[in-house]
Design a protein around this nucleic acid. Sequence first.
DNA 1: TATCGGATGTCAGTTAGCTGACAATCAATG
DNA 2: CATTGATTGTCAGCTAACTGACATCCGATA
Lengths: 150, 150
Amino acid sequence: MSQVASGIDLETSLGYILKEASSALRTSMEEVLRPLGMSITHYSCLELLAQRPGLSNSELARGAFVTRQSMNVLLQSLERDGLVMRPQQPTVGRVLPTELTADGRRQLAVASAAVRGVEDRMKSGLSDQERSSLGAMLACCVSSLRDPER
Amino acid sequence: MSQVASGIDLETSLGYILKEASSALRTSMEEVLRPLGMSITHYSCLELLAQRPGLSNSELARGAFVTRQSMNVLLQSLERDGLVMRPQQPTVGRVLPTELTADGRRQLAVASAAVRGVEDRMKSGLSDQERSSLGAMLACCVSSLRDPER
DNA sequence: TATCGGATGTCAGTTAGCTGACAATCAATG
DNA sequence: CATTGATTGTCAGCTAACTGACATCCGATA
């Protein structure tokens, strides 16, 4: 219970609680996506493409928080399964803009509803005001971590 | 920019922002731990042992959000490197209570300071009140996700 | 025009973490 | 006492994601 000098009290540490929350969310999402035969990255990729059609492999990777190598492997399987489409040849540079197929949109619709249920459950104990302030504070943490500012 | 019907708006989604924050924190922690030759799980294990000496392999796994199989592999390497100690034989049941060695405590002291710096940077844009309410709201999300309650 | 920095797609190899499985042990229950 | 269920440590195999590397291509700059 007592805190070690200069150590980090896990119960109080924002970093630890953040990881705890992220882990709980990941577990819950995996639980609802597994029956659909989808992984979180798989779902994230489709969701990104629905909202921003034509995203490149590298852009999808950044949006899903994985490396472009990992995303590339995923995209190949999604393409093989007919969920997404990429042009054979790049029109400009090396970029291959990716689009959802009808099958991809169908699969996404089911998954999106399931994920929305998880997210709703996660927010169920918070008021509307708390939800927005939670989002704002998390965004603040992100920019503080990324910017090399002091 | 426009939201797809029944889809999840990534800019607004608490789940997405949570993953974004968690990813940024993970990246920042890896940056400061890499020069020390430590991974996040490696550090987490030592930190857990400092605060709760005698934790078992399974308890450490739960605390670090990995499987006990993964933690077991890590513990073996930590033991080989002389950072932790485990009794040869269990005194009760199959549980092997783990303890930090002096070397482990030394390595943890350096890592803990580095991680504290990251966490302080993450919180730098928040007031004291915001920090505590952020922690409370995240804890609320965790319990909502875990409990099968409605 | 020529060059250089940065970004992209992709190949290859490595690794950390996962799932599945098993025996051993404790606690509780009949 | 016997049994059942839950937990623990550990073995084995697998998979997803990582790092490293390379050629290609754009854009800016001299």
